[in-house]
Structures are given as C-alpha cells and as structure tokens.
C-alpha cells in the first residue's frame, strides 16, 4: 500500500519537475521562465517530499522532510520575486507579446519607476538589448 502510494506521488512529482525544466527551456522570457521554474518545481518537490515521508515512515525522517518542505515553500516565492525585480530593473528585454507592463512610462501618466534615477526610461517598455550598467 505504501509502495503504491509512494509510486504515484513520486511519478507525479518527477513529472512536475520535468515540466518545470521544459518550461524553463521553452518559455520566451526571463519572467515567464521564472514563473514556470518557481511554481512547477515547488509542486514537484512537494510531491517528492510527501513520497519520501510515506516511504520512510519515521518520525526523524518526517521532521527532516517537513523542514525541507517548509523551507522551500517559504524561500521559493522570495527568490522568484527577487529575480524578477532584479531582472526588471536591469532592463532585461520583455517578450514581444507582453500585454501589460504596469511600471512602463505613460501607463499611469508618470515616469517609469527605476532604481537609478538618472537613467532614461525605456521607450515602449520593450528593449532589444541589455544596456551597459555601471559597475562599482
């Protein structure tokens, strides 16, 4: 019984992990890639952790698995947010089919938000190449 349950959960988890990797390879943009990576890999790792907890069936193993699960559930959204924020402010090009860029200049009748106030805002919210950045 535990073997069957473990098999089902592990197959689902590895399938989600594989989907996350395929999404990271196939998506057109940094932001969509980050989306695929964080969501699908969190779900896949959660399934793998549940399978390992079922299979080991031990209190010590359960505590460790719960620790890994809680840590990943807490840190993956934070790392996704930090990556998206850093890559947006570093002027990584958006996908051509991007519908809405709320921080673009003129969307709300104001300047484009930027971390470095001396920089010019990007025209149309879409850049074609990485602009050189100041190094300290």
């Amino acid at each position: 019984m535990t073997d069957i349950l473990t098999a089902i959960v592990w197959m689902a988890g590895s399938g989600f992990a594989l989907l996350a990797a395929v999404g990271v390879l196939r998506m057109p943009d940094v932001f969509t890639r980050m989306q695929a990576s964080t969501k699908a890999s969190t779900l896949g790792l959660g399934c793998l952790l549940i399978g390992a907890a079922i299979q080991l069936g031990d209190f010590a193993a359960f505590i460790r698995v719960a620790t890994i699960g809680a840590f990943v559930l807490l840190t993956t959204p934070v790392s996704g947010l930090v990556i998206a924020r850093a890559s947006y402010f570093a002027d990584v090009p958006l996908w051509k089919g991007t519908v809405l860029d709320e921080r673009r200049a003129g969307t709300n009748g104001e300047e484009r938000a930027t971390l470095r106030p001396g920089k010019k805002p990007i025209r149309d919210g879409v850049v074609t190449e990485l602009s050189p950045r100041k190094r300290r």
Binding site: T6, W10, G13, S14, A17, A20, A21, V24, V30, R33, M34, S37, T38, S41, T42, G44, L45, L48, L49, G51, A52, Q55, L56, A61, V65, I68, V72, T76, S79, I83, A86, S87, A90, V92, P93, L130
Partner: peptide
C-alpha cells in the same frame, strides 16, 4: 541569453538536486 536566465536555471538546478537527494534517501532508506 542574459544573466537572469542563468540565475533562474541555477535556482531550478538547486531545487532539482534537492528532489534527487530526497528520492535517493526515500528509496535507499
């Protein structure tokens, strides 16, 4: 093509390695 792409790939790499180790621990005991 850009550095944030590689950061995303490294992040996914870490999560996948954690899953790999967890499956190894569960199957070997």
């Amino acid at each position: 093509p850009t550095l944030p792409d590689r950061i995303v790939a490294m992040d996914l790499f870490g999560v996948l390695v954690v899953g790999f180790i967890v499956v190894l621990a569960g199957s070997s005991g």
